[in-house]
Design a protein around this nucleic acid. Structure first.
Lengths: 363, 363
DNA sequence: CTGAAAGCGCTTACAG
DNA sequence: CTGAAAGCGCTTACAG
């Protein structure tokens, strides 16, 4: 059923004879009146609005008995503070803007969940921004979120447009960088060395006796490039670095891409005996492709992934990977930010949470 | 390096002799003064604040030339409206609260991205709430988000606590339900029949000559139960429903769980010749387990999943599944909500986007 | 430790 | 079509 564009909406009431001069009805709620305000709570508790405000916010310097009365009154009336009014008056919301590249990589979902587990109980609300690995989108998100006067910022990595960086710096807001670390004055970060992790997993393949080790990657974001750097360093040190074995594709990673890149690689370089994939989904796809092609893993080609994602332990054979402690990163970054938002000087501005090799049968 | 708790922060400046009576320095930005306000824009454009406000919001009834001047002035000054002030004055923010069960199921990530692709260009900001399939968490999120006076609500399905439902109803806000459909006065929904989809995929297995068809599920959320209902209906109609072949686990779905449930099922019922999994990750895990156990798919056991997730087409053999149009659901739900927020009567309060069988070699 | 006044930056409702 | 006044619901200074 469709209404004609110009036809009056079906629910319009017939005009009554002596209708009272009521204001036009809006579809949405009109709580302007209904809302329980701080003044209501203050009146109920027999104190001033300021005292009620201070008691509710837990500001010290309020008589315990009074505070008790205020809390009781608030509970009785079902008072919920208005975040907009609070933000307007104090110039800061209880929002924390969290900028991550992508939600389809479960890595970032786990990071996010961990951040929220720390921030939510502390009374902060996360404003989730997905940049799709695009610097221009990150800049736009930053611009839009900054208008909401967040209390703090959580961002991924260090690579962004100068304008985006200027927005962060100019805001003067506490900001913690996640997933990578960098030592610099006034810079806060929680992560690990992507390059060291890339180097470690490559050295593991070398220790397995492999010499023709390829690096296969998708997405090509900054961290993927840092892992490549680690791969190069390890192979150069071992004297068997071949730039031709570096296969990168800007497409987002997926099992399908992994299968395709693996077939490409083996067609071009049949002598490859080890592969380091920048992300587990690529490796999973390659593992299945190898099974289909009859290429023995690890006998003919050893494989290792990155991030130890769900399902990697279920593969045939189970996949060797690098376990990246994203939950730890999220928790520590949020905790660090919490301290900064309270005006505290952090014990350490940079936290390296490390990484862990998970050696399974694919290598 | 660690600072002693009581030591003064390292950056405290030495007290100057004739220091001006400046206010105490705060770590965070003090834009109270710096901020460009609507009044600045109005002054720059030579109009009143109201006119500037109306011009910027695109309210009709502003002289074109004036509006042009206002926009130019805003651009020149780099004016960014303050969402908090706007929300406080108008009793509504530009937020839309989106409540989804989980981010680790890529289904919901795709749904969300699609919602944002529609809402963001329209000037709305999504407030993402993850309920973890827990009614109490949903209720708490609703309470907290409603305080932010969102302009609209997007929720998943219809099953929630009475209190949560009362919050939604009492808010008077436009609300669209996603993933399921339900015909009821004043209720808006975009989705498809989970039961019909469950029935259709089961009938497909029946058409392949299978008679001992099991339903294997995790999570056990309302939609998983509706699919079970479809499975039952199809088998009853075919005269071969066996309740013993219904294997459900409350654990979140994963490849590992799929492998485990598959082994359990085959141990208990070696005669099973077809399996419908409530989600593709379960089926993927089962497929790998079958490969490991030497059980031929589809010869001995045909398998079908649900949602056609990433990787299912890469499996050995490629997995038959039900493609659920979550991007379509997200787009249509957001569009419907947009109309409601503008006070329009929707052409149809319920949109069924359907589903599609994707038959591959596993069945 | 408590409070009266002012103001945050917008929009609503009312006039003209 | 445009505007002056009032107010949204809080918190920030400033006093006492």
């Amino acid at each position: 059923m469709r209404h004609d564009e110009d036809a009056p909406p079906a629910h319009t009431p017939a005009p009554a004879e002596a209708a009272p001069p009521s204001p036009p009805v809006r579809r949405t709620a009109r709580r302007a009146t209904g809302r329980v305000t701080l003044d209501d709570v203050a009146r109920e508790a027999g104190v001033s609005a300021i005292t009620a405000s201070r008691a509710l916010r837990g500001t010290r310097g309020v008589d315990a008995a009074l505070a008790e009365r205020v809390h009781a009154a608030a509970a009785r009336l079902g008072y919920v503070p208005d975040p907009a009014a609070r933000a307007l008056a104090s110039a800061h919301s209880q929002h924390v803007a969290v900028l991550i590249p992508m939600l389809s990589n479960t890595l970032f979902v786990e990071l996010l969940e961990s951040v929220q587990r720390t921030l939510t109980p502390a009374g902060y609300q996360t404003l989730i921004g997905v940049t799709h690995y695009r610097p221009d989108e990150e800049e736009a998100l930053l611009r839009s979120y900054l208008a909401h006067r967040p209390a703090g910022l959580l961002v991924t990595g260090f690579d962004r447009t100068p304008a985006a960086q200027a927005l962060i710096d100019g805001s003067g807001l506490p900001c913690v960088h996640m997933m990578e670390t960098r030592q610099a004055p006034g810079v806060h970060s929680v992560g690990f060395s992507q390059q060291a992790a890339g180097r470690a997993i490559t050295e593991h393949l070398l220790a397995r006796g492999r010499r023709r080790i390829a690096y296969v990657a998708g997405q090509m974001d900054p961290r993927v490039m840092q892992r490549a750097e680690g791969w190069r360093a390890a192979l150069r040190a071992a004297g068997c670095h071949d730039p031709a074995l570096e296969l990168m594709d800007p497409t987002p990673t997926s099992m399908a891409l992994g299968g395709r890149l693996f077939r490409e690689l083996m067609a071009r370089h049949p002598d490859v005996d080890g592969i380091f994939f920048c992300n587990d989904d690529l490796a999973q796809g390659a593992l299945l492709a190898a099974l289909r092609m009859g290429i023995a893993v690890p006998q003919q080609v050893a494989m290792a992934g990155f991030n130890d994602l769900a399902g990697s332990d279920q593969m045939i054979p189970p996949l060797t990977s690098v376990r990246t402690p994203r939950a730890e990163v999220g928790a520590q970054a949020a905790t660090l930010l919490l301290g900064l938002m309270r005006g505290q000087q952090p014990a350490q501005p940079t936290v390296d949470v490390g990484f862990e090799l998970v050696v399974r049968q694919s290598s």
